[in-house]
């Protein structure tokens, strides 16, 4: 077990006043609260800060901690003195993060910080990135987790677990799935696991809610004369009629061909006219013929610029 320097964690001198401690906590909480923080590893840091605050805000715990002396270094191997008489007074203050577990160091000094109703295990959040195809068809995915478990000596040890989770079809970016009882263990039952789904960017489709957008490059003559296009959808290829006189930026709606749901989304096919390169004399001649024969000025609405 390692010594934890709670003052250093909170950026405080050992002489800090109760007001200094509160102010430091609030400042750090604003910076590292996982719901508002953009810092990497914010959740771990926030738990560490919560534990430090739990000790330093409580005069009894702080006095007991201070009695250990100031000769200890952070992360130094630590065993409580043989005559250690800490305080086992109430723990799990209001700021404690979802019934978080405390470090071995904390528990060796103050016992388990969790009391009464909060003895339910902490909820856990995990992230899973799936493909758009998995989201469309539904899938069963392995989710690897590291959950702290108590060993035979009551110590917390990280344990790797793999859960096989069914992802229902139609799940959307950012949605969560709650798996009851799959969070951290606790005396009054395990917490829940919240699995947050991310959908990896797809080379063809762009999801917007349940709708999907696909860009269809077409030739100028397909757009002008109309055509039948073979268009991919997540359920397979469909044939779509491109009306004559189509323009870039126009959309064709394939009703109900988006992501499954109630109601299902639509797939939009975004028309993008791609001009052939004028990289041969023949091609250049065709362009010159169009310039000659088609009285066309796409900037006519600018007036005489």
């Amino acid at each position: 077990m390692h010594y934890r320097d709670y003052y250093r964690i909170m950026g405080l001198e050992r002489t800090a006043s109760a007001e200094d401690i509160k102010r430091a906590y609030r400042k750090l909480a604003r910076r590292y609260h996982p719901d508002v923080s953009k810092e990497p590893g914010a959740e771990e840091r926030f738990k560490e800060i919560g534990e430090a605050y739990e000790v330093l805000r409580d005069p009894e715990k702080r006095a007991a901690y201070d009695r250990l002396g100031s000769q200890w270094q952070a992360e130094q191997d630590f065993t409580p003195p043989p005559d250690w008489r800490g305080t086992h007074g109430g723990g799990g203050g209001p700021h404690i993060f979802e019934g978080q577990e405390f470090s071995d160091f904390f528990e060796s000094l103050f016992g388990s910080g969790r009391r009464g109703a909060s003895a339910r295990g902490a909820d856990e959040t995990a992230h899973l990135t799936i493909t758009l195809e998995d989201a469309f068809h539904g899938a069963t995915k392995p989710v690897r987790l590291t959950i702290p478990q108590r060993d035979a000596h009551g110590r917390l040890v990280p344990e790797q677990r793999t859960l096989n989770v069914r992802i229902p079809k139609g799940i959307q970016q950012g949605q969560q799935i709650r798996l009851a009882g799959q969070g951290n263990p606790g005396r009054a039952g395990a917490g829940d696991l919240y699995l947050e789904i991310a959908i990896a960017p797809h080379p063809l489709y762009r999801p917007d809610g349940r709708d999907l957008y696909l860009t269809a490059p077409v030739t100028p003559w397909e757009a002008a004369l109309g055509a039948r296009l073979k268009v991919p959808t997540l359920a397979g290829t469909v044939e779509v009629r491109l009306p004559e006189g189509s323009q870039s930026g126009q959309k064709l709606r394939l009703k109900g061909r988006g992501m499954p749901g109630t109601p299902p989304g639509d797939q939009y096919v975004l028309i993008e006219i791609v001009n052939p390169k004028a990289d041969s004399e023949k091609a250049r001649e065709l362009y010159r013929a169009m310039a000659r024969d088609l009285a066309f000025d796409p900037r006519a609405h600018w007036g005489a610029a």
Binding site: N164, V165, P168, Q175, Q176, R178, L179, Q182, Y194
Partner: peptide, 14 residues
Amino acid sequence: MSDALNGLVLDELE
């Protein structure tokens, strides 16, 4: 590996 777990999707319909 264990059987697949079904969770509750936190959406507007449930």
